[in-house]
Design a protein around this nucleic acid. Structure first.
Lengths: 141, 141
DNA sequence: GAGTATACGTTAGCCGGCTAATGAGTTGGC
DNA sequence: GCCAACTCATTAGCCGGCTAACGTATACTC
């Protein structure tokens, strides 16, 4: 059946989503917020538009997620010094603290998910995921 | 980095989601509805609860999706002959017609996603996905 | 047979993805 | 200098996942 892959991927997706939610929620972080955090840990004060570009997300997705993270005390909005159209998203102290906590959760979660795969399998798996992404987003032409 | 896998999976997930949405929407089917259709094509007249159990979904997810599919003319609700608590979801003629159309889309989509992988790779990939699902949903104990 | 317990579907509301439409601010042409 | 075009963030609203709360119908106990 051609749908084997679809079904398997979908099942894995939901399992990872549920496990992530459970792992991150202990620190008050929701599943969709982690990738924004990665970027802000690497470079604080990015704008919603810049984050959206780096993550390949729609800008409104970032805007709304940022609002929730602001409510959760993880980051705050600051006006841009020279361009009043821009908003800078800056981590609070709590946002910075999460870096180490979350890193541990990610390692634990990933290890649990891949625990039956050896190093070669893991590398192949990640390579496959990249291929799928590339195959679907690169124009066939 | 331990987050390589998470990032790669997330990117592939969104690529597949977008491609699915684009492929299925041509037939008036939204991405989340396909798995319900698979089940109903195999056995028409299932209840929301039974569908949720078979797909591992929450019942309200099925209920609401069924409502949208009903609005789209893909299925309709029928009372159960002997148990008034139950609702049977039955495909309309249009719902049945979709079977062949959707099968073609799934094959095309999957082929595009996996076009750079040979048969061995594809089987390994699917096996990895199953492993992840199993590893995350089986109690460690 | 009456009353409680259980099972089922729906509704309400949260998060995370999206597009379309708005509004405010900069930039650029003239 | 001024008006048009563009850029950026936000808001509104859709779909698809979830949990919690609700109402109704069946089953079970006594």
């Amino acid at each position: 059946m051609g749908s084997d892959f679809q079904v398997a991927f979908w099942a894995a997706k939901r399992a990872i989503g549920a496990a992530s939610e459970e792992a991150y929620q202990r620190h008050g972080v929701r599943a969709g917020q982690q990738f924004i955090l990665y970027e802000l840990w690497a470079e604080d004060g990015l704008t919603p538009g810049e984050l959206a570009k780096r993550l390949g997300l729609a800008v409104p997705t970032v805007t709304r997620t940022a609002t929730r993270m602001e409510s959760a005390g993880i980051l705050r909005r600051e006006p841009h010094p020279t361009d009043a159209r821009l908003v800078r998203l800056r981590l609070t102290e709590r946002g910075h603290e999460l870096k180490d906590l979350m890193a541990g959760e990610v390692v634990t979660l990933t290890e649990k998910a891949l625990r039956t795969l050896d190093q070669d399998d893991r590398e192949r798996f990640i390579a496959y995921l990249h291929e799928v992404k590339t195959n679907l987003t690169t124009p066939t032409v």
